[in-house]
Design a protein around this nucleic acid. Structure first.
Lengths: 108, 108
DNA sequence: ACAAAACATAACCAAATAGTTATGCGTTGT
DNA sequence: ACAACGCATAACTATTTGGTTATGTTTTGT
């Protein structure tokens, strides 16, 4: 899987986005993170593995704890890509539709 | 599926990101889009359906053609979320650790 | 009138996802 | 010494994903 797509796939899951949000406040151990979720510890470890493989987080062992912290560099690619669309989301589609003489209206 | 996650899922696939990129240059019919991909027309139609359900594209019928165009508003959410990480991706992780140590002063 | 074009959908399939329980391994507290 | 903690991984399962071929509908060109 391409490195870039690893990042997009990683952030496609809401739990993983939540994990990243939590890590913005600072380093956290797995058990600590687990308090915010309803699923099991292995499920959490799997999410963390996906984030690790996307290089969006790093770990360091501290005693028996495994502390995770953010490594946001990979998100820059996403920001840059989405940024290309900035000029589009401000113009109203309806007005664009007028220009294009669009009569269709809905998505199907 | 939550509306927001529909968008993240939609852009997780590289072919769909490519489709959006193509639509930035203007409206296109399905057959036209298909020239840029190696998979079958039904596969393309499926990708387009996912983009439609995420409300990232709209269609209008023009004769026997179905013309797709960008509706980028949904990408704003992504841009905003990723933007929260902007402060993190420029500094090296090691230096960030130092900074946080300084601010924190061992209060945790 | 009719063949072909443009496209969506259905039915199917292999692989990936996201969860589970079970287990093992290093670290810590008593 | 050893029980409990913190965590990763394995093995399993249901669901979703991304592709395929087959087919039906609407529109166009001859």
């Amino acid at each position: 899987m391409a490195a870039t797509t690893l990042v997009y796939t990683a952030i496609a899951d809401p739990s993983r986005r939540r994990i990243l949000d939590l890590l913005r406040e600072g380093e956290r151990a797995v058990v600590e993170l687990g308090k915010f979720f309803d699923f099991s510890q292995p499920a959490l470890s799997k999410h963390l593995r996906i984030l690790r493989e996307a290089k969006l987080v790093r770990t360091r062992k501290l005693g028996r704890e495994n502390r995770y912290r953010l490594d946001a560099k990979g998100l820059r690619t996403v920001y840059d890509w989405v940024g290309h669309y900035e000029q589009f989301w401000n113009q109203s589609l309806d007005r664009l539709g007028d220009v294009l003489d669009d009569i269709d209206g809905g998505s199907r």
